[in-house]
């Protein structure tokens, strides 16, 4: 019987400072055979840990297309473990388990226009979809990206914006920008109000819980169907297998049945969003 709680070693192969509190880290499994058979879906997550510091779920932000070579995690320094992970250097080793969760349902998104809405560090799991769209691996004809962030210092993936602007409709809005900021100011809902939204679009939404309520209201105003709105939820979790109960919402487990849910699935569950 496989021990599902036994992690594997992965080695840091690249580190870059993505924002004031977040590092983008590229990992490769220490054992080549583990890397070669590794595969995942956009929207899935890994449990990453350090000896003695526990483990935590982090969404994979690289494209599944490169899964046999590496995977990337953007890790924000918010707790004891993520603080340690932010000190990692090339060559350091971590313990990982995964991938976990269901990922985005690309079959359901199909050939619909795709709208990605991210808030703060919640933006991370959207990147695999962006990369796959840019590199021609999605069926979707049009991509709109709306990104709400606190200020310039917390924006992620800045070096990729030029490309996103060329190939997609990309909007950034900052809540508390510096005086130098010349772009949009406010909450991400403002972007949705201003942009033209095709009501038959598929929408993927990731961000802090407070964002969901307001964004969903705007999307429903624009006649987007509840079953075409997907959200990725964040909960405390340990096991990753729907056993430890920490991530349960209603009848579902975020680690196993999620983290991606359609709004139609969640709208009647108390405390889900």
């Amino acid at each position: 019987m496989i021990n599902v709680y036994k992690p594997k070693l992965a080695v840091v192969v690249a580190v870059s400072q993505e924002s004031i509190d977040t590092k983008l880290i590229r990992f490769r499994f220490k054992e080549l055979k583990d890397q070669k058979k590794f595969d995942f879906l956009a929207g899935q997550f890994m449990q990453i840990g350090l000896a003695g510091y526990g483990e935590c779920p982090i969404s994979i932000c690289s494209s599944p297309f490169y899964a046999a070579k590496y995977f990337e995690l953007a890790i924000r320094d918010v707790g004891q473990l993520t603080h340690q992970l932010n000190q990692l250097q090339v060559g350091d080793e971590v313990y990982v388990r995964g991938p976990f969760g269901n990922g985005f349902d690309l079959g359901a998104i199909g050939a619909k226009n795709l709208i990605l809405i991210g808030g703060g560090c919640g933006f991370v799991p959207l990147r695999p979809l962006i990369v796959d769209f840019m590199e021609g691996r999605l069926k979707t004809p049009k991509l709109q990206i709306f990104y709400g962030c606190q200020n310039e210092n917390t924006l992620l993936f800045k070096q990729e914006y030029a490309k996103w602007n060329r190939q997609a409709e990309f909007g950034i809005i900052l809540d508390l920008p510096s005086a130098k900021w010349k772009g949009e100011k406010g909450l991400v809902t403002e972007l949705i109000k201003k942009h033209e939204i095709n009501s038959d679009s598929a929408v993927v939404l990731v961000g802090p819980p407070i964002m969901y309520k307001f964004v969903i209201k705007e999307l429903l105003n624009k006649k987007v169907k509840p079953e075409n709105i997907w959200l990725s939820l964040e909960r405390k979790m340990y096991c990753g297998h729907g056993v430890c109960q920490h991530c349960a919402i209603g009848r579902y487990y975020v680690c196993k049945d999620g983290p991606v849910f359609s709004y139609a699935q969640l709208k009647d569950i108390p405390n889900a969003i």
Binding site: Y5, G52, C244, H246
Partner: peptide, 18 residues
């Protein structure tokens, strides 16, 4: 039957308990 994983914070001799 719910559980936590609890790690001992000692990088030289670490352990995980359920």
């Amino acid at each position: 039957f719910c559980f936590d994983f609890v790690d001992k914070i000692d990088p030289n001799d670490a352990r995980r308990d359920r």
